[in-house]
Design a protein around this nucleic acid. Structure first.
Lengths: 245, 245
DNA sequence: TAGATTGTTAATCGATTAACAATC
DNA sequence: TAGATTGTTAATCGATTAACAATC
């Protein structure tokens, strides 16, 4: 679900260097390709075929080639893709050439874990600030960062040039936090609270809801159980799904 | 990305009570509707219009009605949907009428948080077992559960009738854990490790990768920055996206 | 009956896929 | 040249959306 509209280029016919249009589904897969490419680079391979990269990323090779073709032509027919070059290209498209600073609001159970998650640092992000509304949590040190009160958000956002806000508060607090983030100029939010956020146009919100993932699995589990109970027995079923597509 | 194929009904023409075919995109939204319905129920409303429910769930009403129409006709023209009835229906379709038991493998940073996450219990899931490969972690008590060694998985799976496995290990350990889960009969896996799992047909895997979510936001942030830098100025941009669709 | 709202239709859009010509 | 593999085409599929007839 996304409601992106990107009019190629407003005004001034001819003068505007149109941004490369990327389908949302492609954007969502680029990070997976990037991860796979890093893994391949570590094994020492300098090139990789679309087939090889597709396998490592869990997609089919036609989709991979189609996706990469949106970035331009960085492969060599008969040979494959230069691993280092492709990493560069994807990182550049995703805007990962600069390290992005993240403010994490809500240092409860989940917030704690996120604050300590090393997968962020290793992939281009820096948790630059931890905030919480609970005064008893302010001052606590987590992973070398001191928790500050959420009211300091405006100051923190400027000091740390925050690029992305992560909400890990309970659901009832999430909308207010989102409003505060928007008010200080944050235009990208990752929301772990199980609720819908309303934000102005131009602000991107992505949502991760752990219970929803389990419920989707529950559906398939339920259906598989029904199928095996059927006289026909086991029908052919499924394999893998990924999220965020 | 999903590769589901569900041949309506194998064999025995006419005799098989075909399962209601649900589009994957619809399945992925049902849990969100369910959450919204619970919220509405708490405010005391007994019915809700497609418009009202759609707003609460962050989708448009046409999509909501289309989705619900796949479940059958549980609305009343001119009136709306009976909240309690619709909750029942969706829970039944998702297989949530029975509480499902979850085994969580890997009690590091993230695993700890997941073990303590109350959003699971309140939405039909019970963390029934915690496992880890690290002997120094075995025996630790988290949230009233004692961590057991992952080698005990087979026994635990039977004892607790595990329905879903959650992998929260480092990436290099994830495939082996998946293999073990599959070996003891688990057919639904939620994977938090940043890697692709290979599993046999009939096993469903969903993946949550926190860094990937940030990278997708980074892309949009990057593009917004480029747009504002353009002579044309601010182009109309986007609003909200959800994940797992 | 008049007003409201569903369930469904049909058009549109975007994503996937297989196949293959281009080309290293 | 022969073999390999990309980049692109075109067909297919599934999801979204607006509009409205059905009906409470």
């Amino acid at each position: 679900m996304s409601q992106h509209r990107h009019p190629g280029a407003p005004g001034r016919a001819g003068a505007v260097p149109a941004l490369p249009e990327l389908p949302e589904a492609t954007v969502a897969r680029l990070p997976e390709y990037l991860r796979a490419l890093h893994a391949i680079a570590e094994t020492g391979h300098e090139t990789v075929s679309s087939e090889g990269l597709a396998n490592a990323a869990g997609v089919n090779s036609a989709k991979l080639r189609k996706d990469l073709s949106h970035l331009g032509s960085y492969g060599t027919r008969g040979v494959g893709y230069d691993v280092a070059l492709l990493i560069e290209q994807i990182e550049s498209v995703l805007g990962l050439t600069q390290c992005r600073s993240v403010a994490l609001v809500g240092v409860g159970n989940l917030g704690h874990a996120l604050a300590g998650y090393d997968g962020f640092a290793s992939r281009g992000f820096r948790i630059a600030a931890l905030l919480d509304a609970d005064p008893s949590r302010v001052g606590e040190e987590i992973n070398g960062l001191v928790v500050r009160h959420v009211d300091e958000l405006a100051r923190v956002a400027v000091e740390e040039s925050i690029s992305i806000g992560v909400i890990a508060t309970p659901a009832p607090a999430a909308q207010a936090v989102a409003d505060q983030l928007v008010a200080v100029g944050v235009t990208s939010i990752l929301n772990f609270a199980p609720c819908v956020l309303s934000v102005p146009e131009g602000v991107d919100v992505r949502k991760v809801d752990l219970a929803i993932e389990l419920q989707i699995l529950s559906f398939h589990e339920h259906r598989k159980a029904s199928l095996t109970a059927l006289p026909g027995g086991l029908a052919a079923t499924d394999t893998q799904e990924a999220i965020g597509t």
